[in-house]
Design a binder for these strands. Structure first.
Lengths: 192, 192
DNA sequence: GACTCTCTACCTATCAATAGGTAGATGAAC
DNA sequence: GTTCATCTACCTATTGATAGGTAGAGAGTC
């Protein structure tokens, strides 16, 4: 019943959860094999090396993120709503534990030790996210919706830092609701 | 020339840098052996298992953090200055690469996969940090120095999230100065 | 329809390297 | 002699990976 795209996808889904829980070195092909129900050697058929696997995963993640940003811009025209919806997306993921931590944020924490081919993709994700957030702040300022106390890029980086830090704190305290508490304050500041 | 406290300390110092770079599973006794200049087996004399090693490291880190909070309270009476000095401490560490990421924050990111004996200590560190920051916000509010838009605990958690997120962003972008940019905005908000 | 070839997706068996770890020996210091 | 801190030699388990293989599906040819 498994077809090719399904097995490779299963592998990627599994790898994502394992990385999000324990980092690049915290999982092995054997772990995936157990979850997906195939042998370790078969994973090599789809992903010849661990680097290939994780790099593919990050590339997919980046594509999905770009699609997500585009969707945010279609579903709300007000940049404040776009940012709020971005945060709501993560709050839902964290609260229902479907995706409790940004893959690239997790990998970024161990960036010095990542294989270069993976590291470069993780950096690119941060650049994309930063650029999108910056553009949201720029648009909001141009429309008079936001009054920025610093440059749009700095606002964007602060916003991003708070979101990622909120994920970390929710995890550290074992309290998913904490992400919402932290980001509510963040979003409230956008309304002042 | 090596004495017992020096070798064990060397091991801990080395382990800290390795964990901070690549997480709990990103280093091995062999890595430490190479840096410290002893055999892998000798490390077991000082730390019988990897869990013992990392747990000892986190305990030490927590002691140092408590001492640091006490020092911050001695060297400045104004809670705003205490928070600013806390941030300055990290900015210096990140900028001169002496300690570019909070050990417990790094370990917190992979908390689900940590050995329980280590995980509990990491959580305790977050509780201690959160309590100290909360007390700073409470004192600042009581003295009329801060006007809080949310409860002191929420302010503290937001502050912490931004600091940790700033570390992450600096690392992800490969730009240590970014931590300062993010935290300057954070501290400026304390002055309003 | 039967046969052949190619492809896909899986497998077993195996490997080298590495991981955390153990036990006993050795030498230095007291 | 005892203690401490190191070592060698070795262990089991696990890791990412390789080589060779099987089985079934699909397409093309007769």
């Amino acid at each position: 019943m498994s077809n090719s795209s399904s097995t490779a996808d299963d592998i990627l889904v599994c790898a994502r959860a394992l990385i999000t829980a324990g980092g690049y070195n915290g999982f092995s092909y054997a772990d995936i094999a157990e979850v997906v129900g195939i042998r370790k050697a078969s994973i090599h058929h789809h992903f010849p090396s661990k680097v290939d696997l994780v790099r593919t995963l990050v590339l997919r993640y980046r594509e999905d993120a770009k699609a997500g940003f585009a969707a945010l811009e279609r579903t709300a025209s007000d940049p404040r709503d776009q940012l709020a919806n971005y945060v709501s997306y993560w709050e839902k993921c964290i609260t229902d534990a479907s995706d409790p931590f940004c893959l690239c944020a997790l990998l970024a924490s161990e960036l010095p030790a990542l294989p270069p081919a993976v590291a470069v993709e993780v950096r690119l994700h941060f650049e994309t996210l930063s650029a999108w957030l910056t553009s949201a702040f720029e648009r909001g300022a141009a429309l008079g919706i936001f009054r920025l106390s610093t440059a749009p890029r700095a606002e964007a980086e602060s916003f991003m830092a708070t979101v990622h830090g909120g994920m970390l704190s929710a995890r550290a305290h074992g309290d998913p609701k904490l992400f919402g508490i932290i980001t509510t304050a963040l979003l409230n500041r956008l309304s002042n």
